[in-house]
Design a binder for these strands. Sequence first.
DNA 1: CATTACATGTAACGGGTTACATGATTTT
DNA 2: AAAATCATGTAACCCGTTACATGTAATG
Lengths: 208, 208
Amino acid sequence: MTTLGFAILGLLARESLSGYDVTQRMKGRVGFFWGAGHSQVYPELARLEGGGFVAHSVVEQRERPDKKVYEITAAGLDALKEWVTQPPPRKPPKDELTLKAYSVWLADGEDAARLFREEGRRYEEQLARYEEIRAWMEEEWAEHLGRPETPQFASYATLRRGILYEQGNAEWCRWLAGAVEGKPEGAGKPKRAKKKGKEKKGKKKKGA
Amino acid sequence: MTTLGFAILGLLARESLSGYDVTQRMKGRVGFFWGAGHSQVYPELARLEGGGFVAHSVVEQRERPDKKVYEITAAGLDALKEWVTQPPPRKPPKDELTLKAYSVWLADGEDAARLFREEGRRYEEQLARYEEIRAWMEEEWAEHLGRPETPQFASYATLRRGILYEQGNAEWCRWLAGAVEGKPEGAGKPKRAKKKGKEKKGKKKKGA
DNA sequence: CATTACATGTAACGGGTTACATGATTTT
DNA sequence: AAAATCATGTAACCCGTTACATGTAATG
C-alpha cells in the first residue's frame, strides 16, 4: 500500500466521496500536506477497491454525469489505523529555495534580496490565510479541539503544522533577504548587455 | 537542466570533485537540503559534461582506482548564477508524518503519543547537531558570516534554514504528543483483536 | 457563445530509489 | 577471512506530472 492510498483512505474515513471530490481535496491540500492529480487518484481508487479497502456505488444523477461514490470498508479502516501510528521513513527534505541559498554567494546581492523578499512575502500570505482558518476553527470547533478522537482535532493539528512551517520559512526569508541586501557586485545585473569586466575573486578554485 | 544538475553545480562551484565525492556530499546533505545516490550522480555528471557545464580530468592513483575529477566551466558558472535568483516553482510540501496526524483521531491515544514523542525526539537530536555546527561556524567563520559573497555565508544560511525547520517540527510534535496523551481508548472502535502481538510493553530503551 | 464545473479515465514521460555489476585496497 | 572504503557505471521499477481523450451542464 502506498502513501497516496493512505491519504485517500484518510479522506474517506471522514466522508464518502467520488473520485472527483477526492481530487478536489487533494488539490486544495488544505489541512494536510499531500497532493495528487486526478490521473493519480482514479487508478489508486481502483487499486484500493481491488484490495478490498474501499467499495463504490454508482449514484445516478439527472443532468449530471453519473458518479461513483467510494466508501471505506472495515478492512480499509483497520489498515489506516495500523498505518497511523507506524513511524514514517524519514527522508531528507528537498527544498529548491534552500538549494538556491546554498549558491547565493555567486549572485548579485540585489537580485538575491529581491528573490528572498518576494518568497518571504508569499510565505507570509499563506501564513495569514492559515491564521484566519485557525481563528475560525478555534471559534467554531471549540468543543472538538480538546478531543483528540475527533476529525476536527486532527484537522486542527495539521493546520498548526502548516503555521509553524510557514512561520519558519517567512522568518528565514526575511533574515536572508536582509543579510544579502547591499551585497557588493555580482553577476549579470544590467540585462546581460555586456559582460562584467571586474572580477572580485580573491580566492581561486583548484582543479587541473 | 534539472534541479539535480544545479545541486551538483553548486558543489562544483566551491571545489572540484569526483563523482564519488559528489555522492558523499549528497548523502550527508549537511547544509543543503537535497539528496541523491550515486546512480543519479554519475549519469547527471555525464549530462552536464555533454552540455558543457562541467569538464573532467582523469587523476591516476597508485593503489586506488583512477578517478575522474570534475570541474565547473565558465558556462556552468553562468548557468548556476542565472538559476540562483530565479523563483522556484512552489510545490505543496509532502510530509508523511503530517498526513498521519490528519488521521490521528482514529488511533489509540497512547500509540499516537508514543509516535509523536519519538519523532519529536529525533527532530530535537538533529536540531542539537545543527546547533553544534552553528556554534562552530560562528566561531570559526566569524569574518565570513557578514559577507554574503562567500560560500561560508551561504552554508550558514542553509544551516539556519535547517535549524528553523527542525525547531518547528520538534515543537509541533511535542504539542501534538501532549494533546493526544491520555486520549480515551477505542476512539472509533474497539481495537485489540487484530493487534499482531503486544510488543508495546518493552519500550526499547536505547538511552545509552 | 465561450468558459468553467462536473465527471472519469489512459498514455507518455521524467525523476528517484533499489538492485545489479565489477574490482582494488585497507581495516577489523 | 570478512567487511568497509574507494571508485564507476547500468537496469528495472515506482511514483508523480503532463498531456491525451471524452462528454454534459451550469454560468457568464
